[in-house]
């Protein structure tokens, strides 16, 4: 065979031979007008927390806001902390997401009309701090300690980092099967502590007291 053939076309997204998980890419530094909506960090009320509307003009705010929530029951709490990089510097362009059960330990099932969904999103401020208003989650099942799943996105993060927040005062922490998988000397990085009126949970991306991140 001497006839000429065209070079194979460059592989792309539609190539069946390349089918598989879409690779993760960073959110970059400019996600604030695209992801964190006003009220995204207030899971129980109607405060504007979570967005960074200071980073773009008001007529470019497109993100809407959640419907007003009514009838959310449970122990109202604030969770806050600072996100730090490997040099101990605050991370001003991170995005924190949380996912949690309600006060009865049940996850939102798509039809619950109580107003509590359990998903929240907060951008860090220029000082690296984030803050959520939510309710304290209940125990999902016996033998597990109440916890909140946390995802960390941001500039410099090629893919999401996943961790959990536990509450320092809960006795079931001692028997929680996930905490048991964490080396004992690092468990402390997953425990929120009451500081003033808020539960304090810092997220250290790297270095001394690096937060435990999970492979889920």
């Amino acid at each position: 065979m001497t006839e000429q053939v065209n070079p194979a076309p460059r592989q792309d997204n539609q190539d069946p031979g390349l089918f598989g998980q879409t690779p993760s890419q960073t959110v970059g530094p400019y996600f604030h007008y695209g992801l964190p909506w006003k009220g995204g960090a207030d899971l129980v009320g109607d405060m504007d927390m979570g967005a960074r509307a200071d980073l773009f003009a008001p007529d470019h705010y497109m993100l809407g806001r959640p419907l007003v929530r009514t009838g959310v029951t449970g122990d109202l709490i604030t969770i806050e902390g600072i996100v730090l990089d490997g040099a101990g510097q605050p991370v001003p362009d991170a995005l924190i997401e949380i996912w949690q059960a309600n006060a009865q330990g049940r996850y939102f099932d798509g039809v619950d009309n109580s107003g509590f969904i359990g998903f929240g999103r907060a951008s860090t401020g220029d000082d690296g701090w984030y803050r959520f208003r939510t309710i304290r989650p209940g125990q999902i099942e016996a033998g597990q300690a109440p916890h909140i799943a946390i995802g960390v996105l941001g500039r410099g993060l090629i893919k999401r980092l996943s961790t959990r927040l536990y509450f320092a005062d809960h006795a079931a922490n001692a028997v929680d099967p996930v905490l048991a998988l964490v080396p004992a000397e690092r468990r402390d990085t997953l425990i929120a502590r009451k500081v003033g009126a808020a539960w304090r949970f810092d997220i250290v991306l790297q270095g001394e007291r690096e937060t435990v991140f999970f492979d889920i």
């Binding site: 969904i117 597990q144 941001g154 889920i216």
Partner: peptide
């Protein structure tokens, strides 16, 4: 400066990981 240096801890997926909004 922003990627973890310690290995990720592998955990089994439970309701927390397999549910969503």
């Amino acid at each position: 400066p922003r990627s973890p240096r310690l290995p990720l801890v592998k955990i089994p997926q439970g309701l927390t990981e397999t549910t969503g909004p």
